[in-house]
């Protein structure tokens, strides 16, 4: 069944404490810049969904488009600076990617945030809602990967 779904074997990744910490500091810095300059929370699900119609807030829309442009420029700039592409390994199962995408899109809008809005910004602000949201999605994500890899036997 898993082979039919296209789940492949893999995939250890190297533990990168320093690079991950440095990346985390940049993410925190970005969230502070956005709040200090524009008074807005750097929640990516909120920013991306603000770009989708219907639009209610004109200046917010423009800022969201420009923020996403910044995200999209990061990988090309990284490639120019390091002359290598960021490593990526993921499932090649189209059904899993579609279901995952729909759940992430639906869940983050209903739940009012994702790993950045609730996780980074919300935990930093000690928001009770965000603490509960983050614990909830961490638990369901741990359980999902457990079932995927250790019950269904996939390693990706």
């Amino acid at each position: 069944m898993l082979i039919a779904l296209g789940i492949q074997n893999t995939m250890t990744t190297e533990f990168t404490p320093l690079l991950s910490l440095a990346g985390g500091l940049l993410i925190g810095l970005s969230a502070l810049i956005l709040m200090a300059a524009n008074g807005r929370i750097a929640g990516i699900s909120g920013i991306v969904s603000r770009i989708l119609p219907p639009h209610s807030d004109r200046s917010g829309l423009l800022q969201a488009v420009v923020f996403v442009a910044g995200l999209l420029l990061a990988a090309p700039l990284y490639k120019i600076l390091t002359s290598e592409a960021p490593a990526q390994m993921m499932t090649d199962s189209t059904p899993i990617l579609i279901i995952a995408g729909l759940l992430v899109g639906f869940g983050s809008v209903i739940g009012g945030g994702c790993t950045s809005g609730h996780g980074v910004c919300g935990l930093s602000r000690l928001s009770q809602r965000s603490i509960i949201a983050t614990c909830t999605f961490m638990i369901t994500a741990f359980v999902t990967v457990y079932i995927l890899r250790h019950v269904l036997g996939a390693t990706s």
Partner: peptide, 22 residues
């Protein structure tokens, strides 16, 4: 500010390895 924040955020995600689903 939005552009800079997006770029720094994206850079942080890349060097931290979080753009790699694995």
């Amino acid at each position: 500010a939005s552009l800079a924040a997006g770029l720094i955020f994206g850079f942080g995600l890349i060097i931290s390895g979080m753009v790699n689903p694995a």
